[in-house]
Design a protein around this nucleic acid. Sequence first.
DNA 1: CACTGTGGTCTACAGCGTACACAGCCGGTC
DNA 2: GACCGGCTGTGTACGCTGTAGACCACAGTG
Lengths: 224, 224
Amino acid sequence: MAAQKRLNREELITTALAVADAEGLDAVTVRRVAQLHDVTPMALYRHFPDKEGLLVALAGRLLGGAVVPEPDDRPWHEQLRDLLSSFVDALRPHPNAALLVFNGMVTTEPGLAVTERALELMAQGGMSVERSAETASQILGSLVALAIAEPGRDLGPDPEANEDAVRAKRATLLALSPRRYPRIVAAADTLAACSDRELYFDRGVDLIVTGIRDAARAEAAAAH
Amino acid sequence: MAAQKRLNREELITTALAVADAEGLDAVTVRRVAQLHDVTPMALYRHFPDKEGLLVALAGRLLGGAVVPEPDDRPWHEQLRDLLSSFVDALRPHPNAALLVFNGMVTTEPGLAVTERALELMAQGGMSVERSAETASQILGSLVALAIAEPGRDLGPDPEANEDAVRAKRATLLALSPRRYPRIVAAADTLAACSDRELYFDRGVDLIVTGIRDAARAEAAAAH
DNA sequence: CACTGTGGTCTACAGCGTACACAGCCGGTC
DNA sequence: GACCGGCTGTGTACGCTGTAGACCACAGTG
């Protein structure tokens, strides 16, 4: 973040992402990013049309991290699983910014690439064009939500504060009336923070993929 | 919105929701809500600790619309389906504000009620406490996303502007290279706006429920 | 040399959330 | 009826936000 004249679009995106990761999306302000480059706020406007433009570029950066696996000989649903896993893996490191990809999915190149491949795989599974497009819209949100709403990730810049927040949340849940909310009280630990992150995401993706498989089967059956 | 001294908490929430519905969540400002009640901005602070408090109350209002169906004799997954449908139905009329329920799910009474019932039904399906809690976290996001990301709902206060936006989006997709993105181009209509809203939401919920059923079956099988 | 486009600067403005001190009205008690 | 304490709305003020508009320093080109 050294003082250098002639600032660079990609580096601006990088520091914006860093700020979002560290302190949340609200902390990404024009002034803040500018200051981290020792530059006047207005300087950013030579590289982005407005703040929205910066955020769209941020979404593009996130989506760029989602590599589309090469097609292979395995069944379509296994390849779809890998594709979706790759997608959430790209978002997971940046949960604060993940919301932005909602807007960038069909306006950035990487977003289009992922969408295209997903549609292709669903077609291989026998889904109609309309149905696979509809399904794509539905699961996009689910995947983003998966990355954002990982239990045990709340506020708190440092891990220490985060741990405090988790403990507080757990305590809140345990303090509920066991008569009214017996299951919630029993599940307080898991609701406050998932024990195994990898398992959490794997199962989340699996849940979606099995849902899609079933939809494909049902559609094929309906067409007898 | 007549001038009346002695303003009322619930009415403040109502107008905040109305503003969010009409112009988006960003349009909900303390000053704006106050003005609609012919009152100084600071007056709101007698009824909410801060703006965040207002938004949490807004989330509570949304969740309050989700009625928990009475238990009956049908299989657990059918009842779960109805519960989740009721949940998204409560959010659908207010897509701009739906994001807020992420925070209010375990801090508001209605959110707890829905969660408790969902956990109960999954337990009936043979799921372990941990697994059902994990699943609850995963699907919450999916349901919210479903309500928010309905295709064909973007910006534009009036239906006319919305229709314009849809047409523009469709045109953008159709303008893509058919060599690179053949499926996307073919599916442009469905991606830009879903043809049947009811079907869209029904299938979205079905996708999730079948995913859960499968997870329950798999867990039962693993425990042989 | 003058000309032109590019990119950073400076100033300014309207709008945001909200801290703090104050004023009016309300209901309850002598 | 007189008083009084607490609730509720008011006024002012501060520091923050995004960004419009005029300005200037420099590079490359004729």
